[in-house]
Simulated assay, not measured.
Amino acid sequence: MLRRVATVQVVATGTLIFLIIGGAGVGVLALALLGGEILHFGHPDVDGPVSVEAVAGFLGAFGFGAAIVNELLGGGTPGMIAAAVGGGTLAAVPTAWLAGRLSRAARDMRTDATPTRDDLVGALGLVVTPIPAGGYGEVRVRVAGQPVKLNARADRPIPLGAQIFVVQTLSETSVHVETY
């Protein structure tokens, strides 16, 4: 007579604690990336010696790394749990350093200046709605590589599809053009 025996794999208490620490690290990282101002302590213009992202990376890598080592060793004794802590620390230190470097690089990334209406002068484009004498039509120009559709005036009528260049900006959304 054969009996079926159900086996239940029990997770060691140390592994469970390490997994909770890793999950907390992932949670802190998600909060730091999605809403960095929520976890910012002190004056907003002053960075501390350790960023929230680095702490989150350390906690996540430490928790998950230690859980893996603990399960591989069968962490039932204090010595094996100490070895799991060492393995978690070995995974966490470079991860925290990398997270700090990447978050600092993203935060301090240089960007181009925002285009202003003065950047429109000299832009080349096409008439997309004919420009009547004394009235407004529409033109499409490229500013900083992006197509922009603007209201346009001209000294004389300009037909649909004509090539133009901007000679003056009248407002943020309208320009004075001439044929090219």
Rank of each mutant, 00 (worst) to 15 (best):
G75S: 11
A154R: 03
R4P: 04
G23R: 06
G25A: 06
A133G: 05
S174E: 14
A144W: 07
T173R: 11
G48M: 12
F58C: 13
L72F: 10
E172G: 09
A133V: 06
A67Y: 05
G36I: 06
H43I: 00
V50L: 14
V167D: 06
T7V: 15
P78Q: 04
L73Y: 06
Y136P: 03
N70V: 07
Y136K: 12
V148A: 13
F41T: 06
V127R: 01
V55E: 03
L33Q: 12
A32I: 03
P159V: 03
G25S: 05
M1D: 14
G57E: 13
T15N: 09
R156H: 12
A24W: 04
L39Y: 13
W97A: 13
G137A: 04
P132E: 07
H40G: 03
V8M: 15
S51L: 11
V69G: 01
P147E: 02
I68F: 15
P78K: 09
D112V: 06
R156N: 00
T129P: 00
I21Y: 10
A83W: 14
I20V: 14
S51I: 02
D118P: 09
S51D: 08
T169S: 15
D118G: 09
L124T: 13
V141F: 08
D118I: 07
R140P: 01
G22N: 08
R156L: 09
N151D: 11
